[in-house]
């Protein structure tokens, strides 16, 4: 089990108030936004940016990168592994 992915799922559920969602129900490869995934929207994207900054000290400097980074829990975890200053 990938610890970072499991931790990210719990953080997303808490930050986005996904009260009807269990961590095990989130497919790490499924898209976070739009149809076929969690169905998140642009307000959630802002909350995820805050989550990365608060918990991993990562600032998304280039907004164009956001679409690829936030595609799924898996892509977010990869980005954190490559860019995290310190993992709290």
């Amino acid at each position: 089990m990938d610890e970072l992915i499991e931790k990210l799922k719990k953080q997303l559920i808490e930050a986005l108030n996904l009260e009807e969602m269990e961590p095990e129900k989130i497919d790490p490869e499924a898209p976070l936004f739009g149809e076929g995934g969690l169905g998140l929207d642009s307000i959630d994207a802002l909350e995820i940016i805050l989550l990365l900054d608060k918990n991993y000290h990562i600032k998304i400097k280039n907004p164009a990168e956001g679409k690829a980074i936030f595609y799924s829990v898996g892509t977010m975890a990869d980005y954190i592994r490559n860019h995290s200053v310190s993992d709290k």
């Binding site: 307000i43 802002l46 909350e47 940016i49 805050l50 900054d53 608060k54």
Partner: peptide, 11 residues
């Protein structure tokens, strides 16, 4: 307070 008056969630 937590975010030092920056990066606030608007919801």
């Amino acid at each position: 307070i937590d975010r030092n008056e920056s990066m606030l969630n608007p919801s």
